[in-house]
Design a protein around this nucleic acid. Structure first.
Length: 965
RNA sequence: GCGAGGGUAGCCAAGCGGCCAACGGCGGCGGACUCAAGAUCCGCUCGUGUAGACGUUCGUGGGUUCGAUUCCCUCCCCUCGCACCA
């Protein structure tokens, strides 16, 4: 029967569903293995780029089951936050892009679009229609009883418990934090809400507070506060609108735009009057650090919508400023209209404040002159400005006048220096974007301070615990360990709430929702009880309930203090909840998570949060045991992207190739942590290979069973099988799905190819061997291609592969000597083929000469003495018979020393027991058949040897001489 | 810039001190089978070569070693992450 994956797979899916095959419950007699994967976010459909993430854990789950474990592999749906809400809004607005993705990429029928117009309706559509059905079609061995969404009432109770506990432990703190803010909607926005400037990051500008004669503050925005001593003048845009305003009670002058930003960044701003920038051009201001009086010059390049709208000029270090100053000098006479004396402008000279390698005293001048820049419109000006900026930041050292900071590198002291001036009241700060950022609502996006709650990942003790969790972790691949440590060190306060979106309300302030990365840190524990918690009324799921569940009855009994912020029941001793105690058994059985299979892009946030929260909320035995981080998927060499339609839907791929092919391709084309590339040509080829495997397997199954009457080559194949079992098992333990499947499938195919050439497959011994090999391979492959492997295994043995055991190496079938012997045959075959090829002859007769016994003695001596020509010669020459042979021995020793050096000890060992001549004699028939020639084997010293061209003496041990004619 | 990963024959990709001119797949060429196509099987696919060899290769330039694709350093190029976004 030919390979029909759709039919085979449909049967097994049905069978698994009917049997509840992958529903796992605690069983004290079996070891628990708990595997998780980040729950998908159904803000769109699933594509093949997502498939491997879920297939790798499935393969491991299936592997552990074959090893006898009780395995739990659950899934749920993450709907928290704004992406789904945003997607629904865009749909309702009828946005073309959104409609295109839905109807063209994901083939949502027009008439069903309406169902997607509520957030949960949208989520449901993609959960049921894509994720869930795709996962089932792929044969993922998920316990479907445990699914939930993060918007479920009971899940929220669980998150509530988590956040109340963290708050009580002092790990949540309230404060102001800069966020992206849409001035149109008057609301914070996320990257997804942006129309323009998605990847622009806001920057922290220092406001250097210059003052006018009247004592008005003019804050000049800079990213380089350390250049304050190099300021020679200021620039304002004469045509822009500026405002005089009371800022926190002080009189300030900034651009009109800046007043709004200041107001949003926790300043009290009262605008008194607005005027054109020209008004203050020509006046002077005082540098708060040096006390110098500086002139304000006009400049059209000053953007009033960038920071404060007033900039300070540092011509010695900024090529931009240098060119602007030169231009101002050139038209100094025109500046008289602003009441500026032209000579005052011409008198302005750059003031260097630092030394930087590779430039002279005035670096900006050097840079401008060597680049040959003439005016401020030159596009190269930006480049050299950036280049000099970088150089100065990393290698620039401050001059003497900086006192304690003198001689230091800018990158080491900038922050410290700015902080010091800030303390003295000379500097302020302002967050702003360096480029325009526009929200999807069309409004300008600025940085605003928001009152927020954040998780204190900067807490030293918490960090220490998280590091401890990393120490005990099986980080796969191992080099991700340092990334976790690095992230843990680097993480700061993390705002964990949002103003809107789906999810759990902040327990003590329901204006806020806990954001998606923060409500998904310990939910793996929720899986252990998810299938039973539905029977419990939500109101019963209070703090005591979860305390009992996770911390045991004593956590409640011992504690008579009211626990929740709104608990008014007072200090009554409480009874642990019975149901919670029952569920506690589930949690204790399954926890900890043995492996979490995730993407390497999540290391810097989600996976590190996962470690932080486990380390804090649970005791060490419940900490994560292992994390596998995976690479991403490409489609025909390019990044997949649902918005551009450059995706393949799993359902299409499964229809076309079958689920086993999809799985096998993904698992075999790269190791999980490497990127893979979905190329339809390769996928098709994978399918062809599986089909060939199927056909061969079917032949073996249909043939007579044979019996255990084994020839040399059968022993050889069985010995290779043992090596394969070992390789595959080792690889599976390390999640090396490529190595494992490659060895079990393609690697072994190579052995079979040789085996088929070497022997008569109709022998009873061969048939027995082939059945044995097939059965073992089906078990090795069952985690990868479960449909095909279970089907064939059942046809072969009567039971599915998944009900059998993972293959064990059978000691009595290990046979290094036979493997070594067969290698000799292979290399003899290869040598003959080479000679035939090079000479272009079609041989009638092939003569094989095995080296003389004394040569073997010399080899033994080399092995004993070690690969050292001098030492071996010393030993060998003490034998008179050998000494007599003179130079021949010398040459032989040279060759044999090299022979031994090139091989490892095991190979040499296994060769020592080999009867070389017998091996060639056994293979003579095979060679005769292969080359269609007579094959005769001689010993070099045989009497009656035929040696027409005197080749025999060239033989050395394990490298016979050959003659063909 | 910081952190991580990577650059191997036409393409994908393994190797990670000697068994390596370098597994495997795709593509290409030749052959067997076939009326034919497909599938399958065999051989070739860096160069030279009428004897199993030699020569030049594994981003660049150095170094360590008897010996380096494999170890160390320099440089060049590519990919990913860098925060409130899942």
């Amino acid at each position: 029967m030919s390979y029909d994956p759709q039919a085979v797979e449909a049967r097994w899916r049905e069978r698994w569903a009917d049997d509840g095959q992958y529903e796992s419950d605690p069983d004290p007699d079996e070891e628990a293995t708990f595997i998780t994967v980040p729950y998908p976010y159904p803000s769109g459909g699933m594509h093949v780029g997502h498939v491997r993430t879920y297939t790798v854990p499935d393969v491991y789950a299936r592997y552990r089951r074959l090893q006898g474990d009780n395995v739990l592999f659950p899934i749920a749906w993450h709907v928290t936050g704004t992406p789904i809400v945003g997607a629904v809004e865009r749909l309702k607005k009828g946005e073309a892009d959104q409609l295109d993705v839905l109807t063209n990429t994901y083939n949502v029928p027009e008439e069903e679009l309406e169902d997607l117009e509520t957030p949960m309706g949208f989520a449901r559509y993609f959960i049921e229609g894509f994720y869930k059905s795709n996962m089932k079609d792929l044969g993922l061995s998920i316990d479907w009883r445990r699914e939930f969404t993060t918007n479920d009432e009971r899940y929220s109770k669980f998150i509530t418990w988590q956040y109340e506990t963290l708050k009580e432990r002092g790990l949540l703190e309230k404060g102001l934090h800069p966020v992206k803010y849409c001035t149109e909607q008057e609301n914070p926005v996320t990257t997804h809400d942006l129309l323009e400037g998605e990847d622009v990051e806001y920057q922290e500008y220092t406001l250097v507070q210059f003052t006018t004669e009247e004592g008005t503050t003019i804050p000049m925005a800079t990213l380089r506060p350390e250049t304050v001593r190099g300021v020679t003048n200021a620039f304002v845009n004469p045509d822009a609108t500026y405002a005089e305003a009371l800022v926190d009670g002080e009189r300030w002058i900034v651009s009109a735009e800046a007043t709004e930003k200041l107001a949003l960044q926790d300043h009290d701003v009262e605008i008194e009057r607005e005027f054109a920038g020209a008004e203050i051009v020509g006046t002077t201001v005082e540098n708060p650090v040096t006390g110098d009086e500086l002139l304000i010059l006009p400049a059209g390049f000053v953007d009033p919508d960038s920071a404060s709208g007033v900039v300070m000029s540092v011509p010695a270090h900024s090529p931009d400023d240098y060119v602007a100053l030169q231009e101002a000098k050139a038209r100094a006479d025109e500046l008289a209209e602003y009441g500026i004396a032209p000579d005052d402008v011409r008198a302005i000279e750059p003031v260097p404040i630092l030394d930087v390698e590779g430039y002279g005293d005035v670096p900006a001048k050097d840079a401008v002159e060597s680049a040959g820049i003439e005016d401020s419109d030159d596009p190269e000006l930006q480049e050299i400005t950036k280049e000099l900026y970088n150089r100065e930041f990393h290698t620039g050292r401050l001059h003497e006048e900086y006192g304690e900071f003198a001689g230091e590198l800018i990158e080491d002291v900038r922050e410290e220096l700015a902080a010091e001036f800030r303390d003295r009241g000379a500097f302020g700060q302002l967050y702003d974007f360096p480029e325009p950022v526009i929200s999807r609502a069309g409004g300008k996006v600025v940085v605003a301070y928001q009152d927020t709650w954040f998780l204190r990942y900067n807490d030293a003790e918490w960090k220490a615990k998280a590091h401890a969790a990393v120490d005990g972790l099986d980080a796969i691949p191992e080099n991700t360990r340092e990334q976790y440590d690095h992230t843990i060190d680097w993480l700061n306060e993390w705002p964990c709430i949002r103003n809107y979106g789906l999810g759990t309300k902040l327990p003590w302030d329901d204006d806020f929702v806990i954001e998606p990365l923060s409500d998904s840190t310990i939910y793996m524990s929720y899986y252990t009880i998810a299938h039973r918690i539905g029977d419990i009324p939500p109101e019963q799921l209070d703090r005591d309930f979860f305390d009992t569940l996770f911390y045991g009855p004593e956590a409640v009994e011992a504690d008579e203090v009211p626990r929740t912020s709104d608990d008014s029941s007072g200090g009554e001793p409480r009874e642990p909840d019975e149901t919670a105690l029952e569920l506690r058994e589930e949690w204790e059985y399954w926890y900890p998570v043995d492996y979490r299979c995730s993407g390497n892009d999540l290391i810097s946030n989600h996976l590190s949060f996962y470690l932080f929260h486990h380390a804090e909320l649970f005791d060490e035995p419940a900490w994560p045991q292992g994390i596998t981080s995976m690479g991403m998927g490409l489609l025909e060499g390019k990044k997949m992207s649902s918005s551009s339609g450059h995706v393949v839907l799993p359902s299409n791929a499964i229809d076309e190739y079958g689920a086993d092919t999809v799985r096998f391709f993904l698992l075999n084309s790269a190791e999980p942590w490497q990127d893979y590339d979905w190329r339809s040509e390769q996928v098709q080829s994978t399918r062809d290979q599986l089909e060939r495997f199927w056909n061969r397997a079917t032949e073996t199954i249909d043939a007579d069973e044979g019996d255990r009457d084994l020839a040399h080559i059968d022993h050889w194949l069985l010995a290779q099988l043992q090596e394969t079992i070992e390789t595959v098992t080792d690889a599976m333990e390390r999640f090396e799905t490529r190595t494992a499947s490659q060895a079990a499938f393609y690697g072994f195919e190579e052995y079979l190819k040789w085996y088929r050439r070497r022997t008569d497959l109709d022998r009873p011994g061969a048939r027995w061997t082939l059945r044995r090999v097939l059965e073992t391979r089906l078990r090795l492959l069952a985690p990868f291609v479960p449909f095909l492997a279970n089907e064939l295994h059942e046809r072969l043995t009567g039971t599915p592969a998944e009900e059998a055991q993972w293959p064990q190496v059978e000691e009595e079938l290990i046979d290094d000597r036979t493997i070594a012997e067969e290698r000799l045959v292979e290399s003899l075959h290869e040598d003959v083929a080479d000679i035939v090829d090079v000479t272009g002859t079609d041989p009638e007769r092939i003569r094989v000469y095995v080296g003389a016994d004394w040569k073997r003695d010399v080899l033994d001596q080399v092995v004993e003495t070690g690969p050292d020509v001098g030492a071996v010669m010393g030993e060998v020459m003490s034998d008179p018979d050998l000494r007599e042979k003179g130079n021949a021995v010398n040459d032989l020793v040279q060759d044999l020393v090299e022979f031994v050096r090139e091989r490892d000890e095991e190979t040499i060992d296994s060769l020592s027991a080999v009867d070389e001549r017998a091996v060639y004699e056994e293979a003579a028939g095979f060679l005769a058949h292969e080359f269609d020639a007579d094959v005769v084997v001689y010993g070099e010293d045989d009497e009656g040897i035929e040696d027409p061209e005197g080749k025999a003496s060239a033989a050395i041990p394990f490298r016979p001489a050959i003659h063909i004619e």
